[in-house]
């Protein structure tokens, strides 16, 4: 099995952003459909106004933030690789702001060590959610140091436009060194806690999806290899990079941890 090592081929394989059409017509958003190409259609009527995120738990100043307020925190473009646990990837020019900016405003208490997230779920707007095969509303979590890492983004748009419904409108998380399912969509609730938060895919299949879910080519999914990936728009596979290519920025967060045990 000859699989080229990341270092020699990665440099040669440029990260060209995927097209708007590719990013918005191939989505995992189980509340709307488990069929990636159907999500855009099923989510087309999704009402995202008004919208607010309730931020609470172990914070000094819990409160709700309206979308306008969040947008006012500033918008910057971040072009990130996006690696799905299923073995495909894209490059996406997100718009958004670091999650740390929001967390600063609510002042986490000293005991807080994790951040829990919850997605919007409404059976009337998302009737297919019943067939998702996962428990909804979707929940996710990060360690606090991961959450305040400068790469961790609350994304409000892509390609300079407001976030399309199918990509998690109006505001979603983007954690580029973790598998895509960690980047929870359409967030309505953020809770600081001192407990490891439950996460949807971990609850659904604990042996397949761990809490950390860092992109790691050396730790396979029980049913498929994570050593390489199919970049959408390409016909052959390219090597997957440790921490999705963000090792320089984030590896220090996991120093001394056995990443096979904490997958």
């Amino acid at each position: 099995v000859v699989s080229p090592s990341p270092t020699d081929t990665a440099a040669a394989m440029a990260d060209k952003p995927n097209t708007f059409a590719q990013i918005t017509r191939y989505n995992n958003f189980y509340e709307f459909s488990t069929n990636k190409t159907a999500v855009a259609v099923e989510a087309s009527e999704f009402v995202t106004q008004p919208w607010s995120i309730e931020v609470g738990g172990m914070v000094a100043k819990p409160r709700a933030f309206g979308l306008e307020e969040l947008l006012a925190l500033g918008q910057e473009e971040r072009i990130y690789r996006f690696r799905c646990v299923e073995g495909w990837s894209m490059v996406i020019p997100w718009m958004g702001f670091p999650l740390a900016k929001l967390l600063e405003l609510v002042e986490p208490q000293s005991g807080a060590s994790y951040v829990a997230f919850e997605s919007y779920y409404d059976k009337r707007q998302m009737p297919n959610g019943r067939f998702a095969g996962i428990e909804l509303p979707y929940v996710e979590g990060l360690r606090l140091d991961e959450a305040v890492h400068p790469l961790t983004l609350l994304a409000t748009g892509l390609y300079g436009q407001p976030m399309p419904n199918q990509n998690g409108a109006p505001i979603r998380l983007v954690v580029p060194w973790k598998y895509g399912f960690k980047s929870i969509k359409s967030i309505v609730k953020i809770t600081l806690t001192n407990q490891v938060p439950p996460t949807t895919w971990n609850k659904a299949a604990p042996n397949e999806y761990g809490f950390y879910s860092n992109v790691n080519p050396t730790v396979d999914h029980p049913r498929w290899s994570q050593a390489d990936e199919q970049r959408i728009g390409e016909f052959s596979r390219r090597p997957t990079l440790m921490f999705n290519g963000y090792a320089d920025e984030v590896a220090s967060l996991y120093r001394g941890m056995d990443l096979k045990a904490f997958f």
Binding site: V1, V2, S3, S225, S236, R237
Partner: peptide, 20 residues
């Protein structure tokens, strides 16, 4: 062709590693 880049050894390794 697409998933294993026409590699026979890659296919064999995949068969051994992945039950499905």
């Amino acid at each position: 062709g697409f998933d294993r880049s026409w590699s026979i050894s890659g296919t064999v390794a995949d068969v051994i590693k992945r039950p499905f």
